[in-house]
Amino acid sequence: MTQEMDLNQRFEAYIASDQKIEAKDWMPDAYRKTLIRQISQHAHSEIIGMQPEGNWITRAPSLKRKSILLAKVQDEAGHGLYLYSAAETLGISRDEMLNALHTGKSKYSSIFNYPTLAWADIGAIGWLVDGAAIMNQVPLCKCSYGPYARAMVRVCKEESFHQRQGFEIMLNLSNGKPEQKEMAQDALNRWWWPSLMMFGPNDASSKHSEQNMRWKIKRFSNDELRQRFVDMTVPQAELLGLTVPDPDLNWNEATGHYDFGPINWSEFEQVVAGNGPCNRERIETRVTAHENGAWVRDAAAAYAAKSAERAASQTSAA
């Protein structure tokens, strides 16, 4: 017991002095668990997020847009890979994590349970969803767990490129034909509020926040990050000539921030609980891909085993 207390004190002091915790360092079980939860959810979000965007690859309106989108969705798959690898350093396997995703035990970002109904949604996702993700993720580059922090450095570089390409799509649409501008406005109307929900519940009702702040897994509160996002994005919407769908949105001279209207938390809870427009389809698509791929993965494993056997028998013969 005392030994554990010493270890814990040392761990806390280490974190307090802004040093990184590495895979082989001692860490409290709760710290390990919370990181596994957060990193695997983050990886799942990247993988599920491929679906709504992938939905438009085959219909992208020019070959240039098609290659950019294909490259972007491929980046998301790459992020999923490094995040699964970062989580594996904490002693969980990719199979276990995927299983938790497929059975609904582990969550992913709720934003991906909304449908992409038009090409403009690809712009809105890059601009708003990736924009909100960057707000959340840049502070994670300094998170106390080394492998996660390092994975996030690369993820954030790519995400910031994604955000710019999304804005560029919106800019093209806004300067395009009236039907294109209308498409852009419609996408903003549908993605604005779900993007604000991406920062999570208000600080007063956030259940993981306090401990995570102390452990330097989290560095800013949900509400702080949401406010930063609104402050950054509203002028961009003005530049696009689009209207943010919030009648209460107002620049507040006194606070130096935008005031914005109340978020519909019951919608958020519904989507988190599995009742969003695409929850069922997203998981079904993922599970089907996994099941359809089982014979391929089995074949690869069987072939690898045979090859190893042949190599071993050749060595022993020699």
């Binding site: 491929m50 690859i57 798959a77």
Partner: peptide, 22 residues
């Protein structure tokens, strides 16, 4: 090949097929 995106048998192969498509 781009139709395979997010339907591959493993994440690595999903990336490979997208890469070839690209």
């Amino acid at each position: 090949l781009s139709e395979w995106c997010s339907h591959g048998p493993a994440l690595e192969e999903d990336i490979a097929l997208s890469n070839i498509a690209l």
